[in-house]
Computed example of a mutant assay.
Amino acid sequence: MKKSLIALAVLGASGFAMAQSSVTLYGVADAGIGKIEAGAPAGNDASDKTEFISGSLMNNGNSRIGVRGVEDLGGGLKAGFNFESGLDLDNGNNLGSGGGFWGRAANLWLGGNWGTFKMGRTLNTSFYGIVTWELTGAANYSVVGNTYNYAGGGPRSNSQFSYKTPNMGGFSAELGYILKPDNGDRAKWDVNAIYANGPIGVGLSANKVKSGKTNYALGGKYNFGNFALAGSYTTAHNAANAKRRGFSLGGTATFGAASLTLDLTRDTKNEWTGKKYTNGLVEAKYALSKRTFVYGAFLRLDDTNNYGIGVRHNF
């Protein structure tokens, strides 16, 4: 009887603790078949041959496994973390996405009614501004992301401190900062301003590394129901401060479980390659369930032709 009472007390205490915090395991499995020309900024699977693809330019996304948690500290204050690791379904190797084992995410945060303060490796502030209006949900084959490298800053940053405001009727803003010793002796700031409410999504992204030039992207999307239209204008610089500038225009049509996207970019200036390009993406998706879909995509990127057909499952 005594042991039973102790066990009940332990279970009761445990249940209280679990009610105050939670840890979630999640992930993505994405693989298919495709061809990626070696001249594209393709990373994995760039061989000019039709082959199995995973974690490549022509996958919808990288396979990954992650863990995130949140604890209610009381008084409206919460603490949380996110660790996420990439996975190559070719052979089971780790894909660091530019970082180490937890290269997709390794951060912690504090949040409340006043907003959220985050520290660590994370998707950067400019990326979130672009995702507000980008038509593919920032797929690996995003023509805007690949043409202008997410406003010249890439999708992720190490050692970033950031503050995000609470959502105020659809408006929010976020400021990220990386200290000088953490970024090759050059401090970096990164900011976005977003309006996302109902059918409208507008995002402004800007970032700058000390002694570099300011990158920015401004885009918007309007969802008419079964059709969404998006457009943007971007000025981006590479590490040598060479400029690439241009605009995008595209749309997505939805037919029940199926969707078709056409997205185009056009350079108005391109010092990265010395030649102005018109790049384009055609993407088709069909949802098999809320968590699983099949897709096919063709990407014309700076004189390279790339395609992929695959399956993505979210868990």
Rank of each mutant, 00 (worst) to 15 (best):
L135C: 09
F127L: 13
K118C: 06
A139Q: 03
A138Q: 12
G129L: 03
N140S: 12
G137A: 09
A138V: 11
L108K: 01
N124F: 02
V144K: 06
T147D: 12
W109E: 13
V144A: 10
A139P: 00
V131K: 13
T147E: 14
L108N: 05
G145Y: 00
M119Q: 13
F127K: 05
V131I: 13
T147P: 06
L135G: 04
V131W: 05
V143C: 08
A139C: 04
T132A: 15
N140E: 11
F127M: 08
K118H: 12
W114P: 07
T132K: 08
G115L: 08
N107Y: 12
V131D: 14
E134A: 08
G137L: 01
G137D: 07
T125D: 04
N124I: 03
F127R: 01
N113T: 09
Y141S: 10
S142K: 03
T116R: 15
G120S: 09
N140R: 05
W133C: 02
F117G: 02
N124L: 02
G145D: 01
V144I: 15
G112D: 01
G120T: 04
M119N: 06
L135Q: 11
G145N: 10
N113C: 02
W114S: 11
Y128L: 11
W133V: 08
R121Q: 07
V144W: 11
W133K: 05
T116G: 03
I130F: 00
T132L: 07
R121G: 03
M119D: 00
Y148C: 10
K118E: 14
T147M: 07
T116D: 12
T136Q: 12
R121L: 13
V143K: 10
G137I: 08
N107M: 14
L123I: 04
L110V: 15
L135A: 07
Y148F: 15
G129P: 01
G145F: 00
Y128R: 09
R121V: 02
I130M: 02
A139K: 01
K118N: 14
G115N: 12
T122L: 14
T136H: 08
L135T: 08
Y141W: 13
L135K: 06
N113I: 05
T116W: 00
G115K: 12
V131G: 04
W114Q: 13
W109N: 15
G129D: 02
N140L: 10
T125A: 05
V144G: 05
A138N: 14
A139Y: 01
S142M: 03
N124D: 11
V131C: 04
T136L: 07
F117C: 04
